[in-house]
Nucleic acid binder design. Structure first.
Lengths: 222, 222
DNA sequence: AAGATCGGTTACCGAACAGTAACATGAAGC
DNA sequence: GCTTCATGTTACTGTTCGGTAACCGATCTT
């Protein structure tokens, strides 16, 4: 979402008589509706994928939920895989945004990490959270799978950097930062499995309880 | 694995002349090979599912990896869904075993919880770990999905009970036990996503680092 | 008013794949 | 040696579903 550029190549619809395309001389007509509808498709896909799973979601169903027919979807997205990838990118963008603001903020790195965790939790339970987490292990081609893995690795790296900064500034105790990052990410990612909209706790309340635990650990008296 | 009972009904193979079955009068012949091969099928399925995913694994491939053909699989398992379910049960059994020994053990509940975490981590990265975690959200019929959800909820409940016991005996500080259980389970379950056999750390080493983190938390000086 | 074209439809294709029918074989039991 | 049955095989079916071809009508431009 929220990026106009990466539109796929406009698919030249094969007509009976297809006159010479001469692609760059046509005066552009308002494409506004197009972009909006495209986003609607992506969002509906994200919701369907989260609810029914990627494979269980047929494009016929998805199209029907938007009150159109399947071929219409192909006007906006080249194929199902790309749909999932767009959803992934939308979720990713949300997290990267949080990440950037937390990296730029002042104060002890531990607090900045916790701020990130709040944003991350919100993203995970959001519309694109499921796709972000699970895109990778759906039925995707190898190149796309690699791209996703790479982008996710970037998130992980920056999260670890935040932890390392905390160790450096003393706000986080010495620890295996790699494993700690995995533990944190795991706890948060798992929300995507059990959290449902109707839950009693709001995402930020959950994040706060998680942070309390992350912060102080389990140990009582000993 | 390791339970002989729950064999599915022996499928009466339709023959050209199918003489009266009279089911309970035949003297049983040694079924040993049968059980062994059945377990081989389940194990191969578990590994294939973990590696390629449930949907990406076609039964033709799976059969080929066992040097047989697809219909042979149907001698041992009634359908693909049941295969996944058997894998799930195998993983579940492993965890329940750990759980029982930890519940029965002596000592502060925090230590018993940590012992459970070690066993749990081993199970997650084991052959059936993937199936345990992901069976539920594959393409399964509603009844099977429900059964799985129920069994998983049992694990969760017993894990939470362990935490509550820790709070009761003082070895774990006061906290939201429900959220804490989710955080712990999430961190561990996520191992199933990133852990690979060739990793530098063995599962119990990872578990130890996780436990260190769970125990003391992140907080440095403040 | 003409006509290109965007956004949409109906009707179809083809591949993948779970599951089945019918036949083949070899070893155990009488 | 004959039967019986477990265990395989080959060859097929039926369905689901992603993707495409070809037509259509409202709208904006000129």
């Amino acid at each position: 979402m929220s990026e106009a550029a990466p539109k796929y190549k406009v698919k030249p619809r094969t007509r009976k008589e297809l006159r010479a395309p001469s692609p760059w001389e046509g005066r552009r007509r308002p494409r506004l509706q197009n972009a909006l509808k495209r986003e609607a498709v992506i969002l509906a896909a994200a919701r369907a994928f989260r609810q029914r799973g990627y494979h269980k979601t047929s494009l016929d169903e998805l199209a029907a939920s938007l009150k159109v027919t399947k071929p219409t979807l192909y006007i906006y997205v080249p194929n199902k895989e790309a749909m999932l990838f767009e959803c992934f990118k939308a979720g990713l963008a949300q997290i990267q945004e949080t990440l950037e603001s937390c990296e730029a903020a002042r104060g002890p790195a531990r607090e900045r990490l916790f701020a990130f965790i709040r944003g991350y939790a919100a993203a995970i339970v959001g519309d694109f959270g499921w796709c972000m987490l699970r895109a990778e292990d759906q039925h995707l081609g190898a190149p796309m799978s690699r791209r996703i893995k790479l982008l996710k690795a970037g998130i992980d790296r920056r999260m670890r950097a935040l932890i390392e900064a905390g160790v450096a500034d003393g706000s986080i105790r010495e620890c295996d930062t790699r494993m700690t990052a995995f533990a944190l990410a795991g706890a948060l990612n798992w929300m995507g499995h059990w959290y449902r909209e109707d839950a009693t706790l709001k995402p930020d309340e959950i994040a706060d309880r998680f942070i309390d635990f992350f912060n102080k650990g389990l140990r009582g008296r000993d």
